[in-house]
Every structure is written in structure tokens, then in C-alpha cells.
Design a protein around this nucleic acid. Structure first.
Lengths: 162, 162
DNA sequence: GTAATTGCAAATTCTTTGCACATAT
DNA sequence: ATATGTGCAAAGAATTTGCAATTAC
């Protein structure tokens, strides 16, 4: 966990589990133990988890699910809108609970891997204007700022981020 | 090719070939036909090429190189500073000739795949300020704006971008 | 001549798919 | 009951690596 405040309101694991249960019911999809467990892990976490990390969290909590199921459920979670997919250029994807934030950017520490989030309205407006100037209809954008966090610069960090 | 003006100065295939030859010599690395051919393709192109596309360009020009050699040479080109690696979240990397631009952003058409480049000083300053506010030492940043280009919106496009 | 590169194929990493078996409704 | 999900293992896609044959210097 980073020490900075998160953007938006975080949801509890319970809310994640129940929210996904409702969504599955609405869509006439079977509610299985694996699906609820995966939803609880991803939505209950404040981090950006990879598929593998989701599987690890599961087994460390007594639950377990095959790799295929993890991927298939993450796909459902993204389609439900409860989870958002992220690509930090690491060669694999990460998944993050969708909070009540329309959009936010990421600061990535290249030393410890810590991810910090922020929102900036100016950036929102700026990308729209830039797109228009190039005759593009802006759909969305993605900004990742890479750098070194304070803890790593000062050698203060005691616990590894990931 | 997009119709908008490119950022910075483009280099010719010849310049790419010779520039890489010099770099190889300076680093006591063998100058091979494959290396020069790959440099010519990547640096001579105004596009963002994938490793596979580089291999295709090669064979269509009579040259040829194994996949491993293409990847190994792209790695050298990146390390030489003559080529820059890009990640547009497609699941694979693209490589672009490094021009005299310190940094530029990308507009990506989600319909035809066209990539347009632009530079924005405000963004440069903004990311530095944002990083500082979060106690990060900014190293670099990456902004990709996704949208639909004018040609695709109007159905005007006649030639596929990729 | 000797050290480095090349190309092929096998190995890796992340992700998807096919299929027999298990489970939700 | 019956459609759907699950897990395993095989398949895929992009990229890397081991190694014998080849080439640069």
C-alpha cells in the first residue's frame, strides 16, 4: 500500500462479493464459489493485481481457482463494470476495483513498483482539446508517469510493495 | 501515413544504416548485413513497426533475418538511442526511429490504428508538478489518447493504415 | 584464427481454448 | 434435468534462449 490517499471511495470485500452476485443474477449467470471469491479478492483490494496475484491471494485465503477460471472471471468482472483493466507496460495486465472515479492517472515507482493514483481535471480537458486539434474524436486516454517514490529515494521503505 | 505533420525531423534509410554502423564500430560490435538492413527498415520508416512488421519489410526488400536476430538487433538499436520502443497496449511492442524530439505523445485511432504524434510543453510541465506533489522524482511519462480519427469518422479512408 | 553473430528450434511468459467432469438453478 | 462453469492440459502469441554452423575482423 502506498501512503497517499486513494482516489475515490474504496469498497469492502463484502460489497464486491455482493455486487458481483447481483450482477450475475441479473445476467442469468451461475453464482459460483470461485466467482465470488475472485470478486472479493479483486474488489476488496486497494491494489492493482495481476491474474497471478489474484490466484495467490485466493490460495492464501483457503479458496482456490484454476488459472483459466481466474482469467474468465476477471473478464466477467471487467464486463460488469466492477473492475477495470490496466496496462502498465509490464507485459501483463493488472486489475483494479472500479471505484466511483470517472478516470484517473497513475504514478509508477520504477524501483519498488508502487502505484499511486491521482486525478486531474486539467489533463482531462487538455486531452480533449489536443484530440480535437488533430481531428480526433477523443474516446479515452491513459497517462502513466514513471519515477522514483520518496521512500525509495530516501531508502526508507521497509516493506516491499509487490 | 497520417496526413498530419510529423514531430521532429525524419531521417533517411541511409542515415539510419550509417548511423548504426558508426555506433556498432564505436562499441566494437560486428557490422553484419542483417543489422544494417534492420536499421535501415526501422530508422527509414516513419511508422511505428512491430518486430513482425520489420521482418516482413525485410523479406519484401530481398533481405531476410531470423526472428531472434530481429529482436536482438532491435534491442541494440534501442540501446544505441537510434530507435525508441513504444507500448500502445496492443500486447506487443512497436519500434520507432528516434528523431530529435525529447519526448512526444501519441494519438491512436481505435478504428484504423493510425498513430499521430504531438508534443505539448504544458503536459511536460504538468507531469513534473504532479509527480512532485506526490513526492515522486519524475523520470518520464507516457500519454496515449485513444479516439477515432477524422477519416474513419467520415468513412473517407481509402487505404488501410496497417 | 578467434570471438561474436546467426538461425533454427526449444523454452518462457501471459493468456486463451477444448473437453470431460462437476455444479448451479 | 440441463445448461453452464471448472480444472487440467494443450494451444497460442510474443519474445527469449541454447547451440551448432557461419561470418566479421
Amino acid at each position: 500500500m502506498t501512503s497517499a490517499p486513494m482516489v475515490g471511495t474504496s469498497r469492502t470485500a463484502q460489497q464486491g462479493r455482493e455486487g458481483f452476485r447481483s450482477w450475475l443474477r441479473e445476467h442469468n449467470l451461475p453464482v459460483t464459489a470461485q466467482r465470488l471469491a475472485i470478486a472479493e479478492v479483486v474488489i476488496g483490494s486497494a491494489q492493482h493485481l495481476s491474474a497471478e496475484e489474484v490466484a495467490q491471494h485466493l490460495s492464501s485465503h483457503g479458496d482456490k481457482a484454476g488459472t483459466a477460471t481466474v482469467y474468465r472471471t476477471l473478464d466477467l468482472l471487467v464486463r460488469s463494470g466492477l473492475v477495470v483493466e490496466r496496462d502498465f507496460g509490464e507485459g501483463f495486465r493488472r486489475f483494479e476495483a472500479a471505484r466511483d472515479v470517472p478516470h484517473h492517472e497513475h504514478l509508477l515507482c520504477t524501483v519498488c513498483g508502487a502505484v499511486e493514483e491521482f486525478r486531474d481535471e486539467r489533463l482531462e480537458r487538455m486531452t480533449t482539446i489536443i484530440a480535437e486539434a488533430h481531428d480526433f474524436a477523443r474516446h479515452r486516454h491513459r497517462l502513466v508517469i514513471q519515477g522514483v517514490c520518496g521512500a525509495c529515494r530516501r531508502g526508507t521503505r521497509t516493506t516491499p510493495e509487490r
